[in-house]
Nucleic acid binder design. Structure first.
Lengths: 349, 349
DNA sequence: TCAATAACTGCAATCGATTGCTATCCAAGA
DNA sequence: TCTTGGATAGCAATCGATTGCAGTTATTGA
C-alpha cells in the first residue's frame, strides 16, 4: 500500500513524530509551528515543540500543506523564450521577490504557439499554482480570457493587453520613442524612419504609435512606412532595413523597436557599405547586455527588466495575499542611453 | 473547516464528480484515467469514464497525486545567476526535455552564497521535488554531500565536482584549450598567456590545467602566470589583463577562460591602445550571444549549453524513472569558432 | 453441473498537514 | 458554592488521488 519502495528523499519525518517526541498531539505541533496560530498554544509547550522540531530537523511537507490549504506557494511563469536575456532578467527579478515571500517560481518556456501556452497553463492549474506571470501575451490573447474566467491571479509583464483585464507591468513605450526621436531631432535629423516590431505585441504596436506621435509633435514628415516585422529578431531587422533603404535615400536615422532589430539593421548597413553613424544613425530598444561592446556601441532605450519582474511579483503577491482585486497597470520610466550609433546627419548624401 | 473562502481557481472538479457522473467508483475512474492501470478496467467502462472526464473538463489535482505517490513531478534547478545567458540556455534545454516528460522546472536563483543555496535546497526537499539540477557547485561542495546523504537524485551541469559523487554534464575543457592553443600555434604564436577563471569552479581549474598541458605539448614556454580571477566577470578580466601586460611584453596572445573575461581583456587593450588582433590575439570561451558583433568579433570556444541542459534532464529522468543508480559523466565536445580577434603575431613588437 | 479461475469493480486506508469543534481545567466573579 | 468564561489541547474530518485487498460476477474446464 505504500507507494514508495524505499525511504527515498524527503526524510519521512512528519508532524506525528515531532508530536510523539514532544508528548503532544500533532495538531498542537502544527499550531505551535505556524506563527499565525502560535498564540493558541501555551508558551512552554511552544518552546518545547520548537526545540524538538529543531533537534529532529523537522521540515513540514509543503505538498501536504498545499493540498489541505489549497495554496501551493508556487507561481508559474509563461515565457516565450528563456534564453532571451530580456525574459531571464524579468525572471530573475521576480524570483528574488517571490523567494523572500516563501514562494517558488515554476517556469514554462512555451514559445509563441498559443495551443501550447494554453496546455502548459492548464498544467499549472492542475498543480494548483497560486498565480501566474505572463510574458507571452499578444494584444488580444485568449490566454488572458482563460485566466479571467478561471479567476486565476495573473500579471502581465513587458507586454500589456489591450482590454486591460489583468494587471500589467510595462515600460512607457510612448515616452521611450519620444526620447529617441527628440535625441535625433536635437542632432539635426529630419528624415527618421522606424523599424516596427510585431503588431501583435503591445510593444510593437505602442512603439510604432509612440514613434508616429513623436514625429508629428516635431512637425516632421513621416517616412513612407514599411511593414512591421513578424518577430523581434536580427533576421527580421535586416529584412526590414533592406526594404527601407531600397525605396528611400533621404533617411538619415532609424529607430528600431528593439535591439535585435537594430542589430539586423547594422548587418544591412555593413553589407551595403553604409557607415553608422556617419551616414545613418541607429537607435535600439532594451539595452541588452553587450550592445555597448559592439561596433558602433548602440544608442538604445534602457528598461530595467529586473525591476519589471520585481514589480510583477509584488503585484501578484498583494493580489494573492490581500484578496485585492483591483487591476493595476504599473508603468516604469525608461531612459535613453546615448552611445556611438547616433551622430548629426551628413550635410549632403 | 474549508480552507478556501471562495471557489478560487482550480475548478474543484474531482475524481468523485467524474465517478458519480459515470456511475462508477472513484478508484475505477483513477484506474481508467491512468494508462498504466487502464488494463484493469473493462473497455466499455474506460470509454465511458474517458468521455465523461472529457465532457466535464476534468483535470486531476497533481498536488493530491503527488502527496499520495510521493512523486511531485517537479525538478528543482539551482542557478547562480539566471540572467547570465549561459545558465538560461541550460534551463531552456532542460525545461524542454522535462516538459515533454510531464515534469516542470522550479528555479532558484541563488547567487554564490553556500548558506542560501543549502536553504533553498531544503525548501526544494520540503516541496518533495523529484530531482535537482545543480549549476552552482564548486569543486568540493557541501551541497553535493547533502544530496548524496539525502539520496536526492541530482545532476551537475556545466561544472563538475572533484569526487564524482554525482552525475554531471560538462563540456570537454581540456579539449577546448587544446583547440584554442593549437589555433594560435598554427598562426605562429609562441608566447601565449592564460587568464584563468576561479579555481573554485571546475571550469576554471580544468581550463587552466588544459591550457598548461596544451602549451607543454607544443613545447612552448609557460608565460609567468598571474593569479586566477575571483569570478567570471568583465571587471575581473580587465584586472587580470592589466596585471598580465604590466609584467610582460612578449605575450602575443591571450586565452581567456570565459567570454566575459575576454571582454575585460578587450577593455584593457583598448585603454592601452593595444590593437587586437594585430598586437595581441584574444580567445574567449562559451560563444555568448553577440560576441560575433563586437569589435573585433571574438574567436571563442562554442559549447551547446542547451544541449547540456537537455542531457542533464535526460540523465535525471532516467535516474528517477529507472531507478538507475550509476553515476555518469557526460562530456560534450566543444568547437572553436574562429572570428577576427585572432591573427598571426606581428614580427616585431 | 459444479468448482476453479479470471476479470472487474468497490471498499477503505493512506499520504501529511490543517482546522472547526469539543472537552478539560482553572481562575475569577456572583 | 456555583456559574461563567478564558485558555489550552485533543479529536476527527478533510484536502483529492492512489492502491492493496476483498468481493462479485462471468467464464472456463472437468
Amino acid at each position: 500500500m505504500n507507494g514508495r519502495s524505499k525511504a527515498g528523499p524527503g526524510s519521512n519525518l512528519t508532524l506525528k513524530h515531532v508530536a510523539r517526541e514532544a508528548g503532544v498531539h500533532p495538531s498542537t505541533v502544527s499550531r505551535a509551528l505556524n506563527p499565525a496560530t502560535r498564540s493558541l498554544v501555551a508558551d512552554d509547550v511552544v518552546a518545547r515543540v520548537l526545540q524538538v522540531a529543531q533537534d529532529l530537523g523537522y521540515r513540514p511537507n509543503l505538498l501536504a500543506a498545499a493540498l489541505r490549504t489549497g495554496r501551493s506557494r508556487l507561481i508559474g511563469a509563461l515565457i516565450p523564450n528563456i534564453s532571451n536575456t530580456l525574459f531571464s532578467m524579468i525572471l530573475s527579478g521576480a524570483a528574488e521577490r517571490l523567494a523572500s515571500a516563501g514562494y517558488s517560481l515554476v517556469i514554462a518556456d512555451v514559445g509563441d504557439e498559443p495551443a501550447r501556452q494554453l496546455e502548459l497553463t492548464r498544467q499549472f492549474v492542475a498543480r494548483r499554482i497560486d498565480g501566474l506571470i505572463l510574458a507571452t501575451v499578444r494584444r488580444d490573447d485568449p490566454l488572458v480570457a482563460f485566466c479571467v474566467e478561471q479567476e486565476l491571479p495573473a500579471v502581465l509583464v513587458n507586454r500589456a493587453e489591450e482590454k486591460r483585464r489583468l494587471s500589467a507591468v510595462v515600460s512607457d513605450d510612448g515616452l521611450a520613442m519620444q526620447l529617441a526621436v527628440e535625441h535625433l531631432v536635437e542632432l539635426g535629423h529630419k528624415h527618421i524612419a522606424h523599424v516596427a516590431g510585431p503588431e501583435t505585441t503591445s510593444t510593437g504596436h505602442l512603439r510604432r504609435l509612440g514613434f508616429t506621435q513623436a514625429i508629428n509633435s516635431h512637425k516632421l514628415g513621416i517616412e513612407p512606412s514599411i511593414e512591421p516585422t513578424k518577430s523581434y529578431s536580427r533576421e527580421e531587422g535586416a529584412r526590414a532595413a533592406e526594404k527601407l533603404l531600397a525605396g528611400n535615400d533621404r533617411v538619415t536615422a532609424i529607430v528600431a523597436a528593439n535591439d535585435l532589430l537594430a542589430l539586423g539593421v547594422y548587418d544591412i548597413l555593413r553589407e551595403k557599405g553604409v557607415n553608422c553613424p556617419r551616414d545613418i544613425s541607429v537607435i535600439g530598444h532594451n539595452d541588452m547586455p553587450l550592445v555597448d561592446m559592439i561596433s558602433p556601441p548602440l544608442t538604445t532605450v534602457r528598461i530595467s527588466h529586473q525591476e519589471i519582474g520585481r514589480q510583477a511579483a509584488s503585484l501578484l503577491l498583494s493580489r494573492i495575499q490581500g484578496d485585492e482585486t483591483v487591476q493595476r497597470n504599473v508603468v516604469l520610466t525608461p531612459s535613453l542611453i546615448v552611445r556611438e550609433s547616433t551622430a548629426p546627419p551628413r550635410k549632403i548624401r
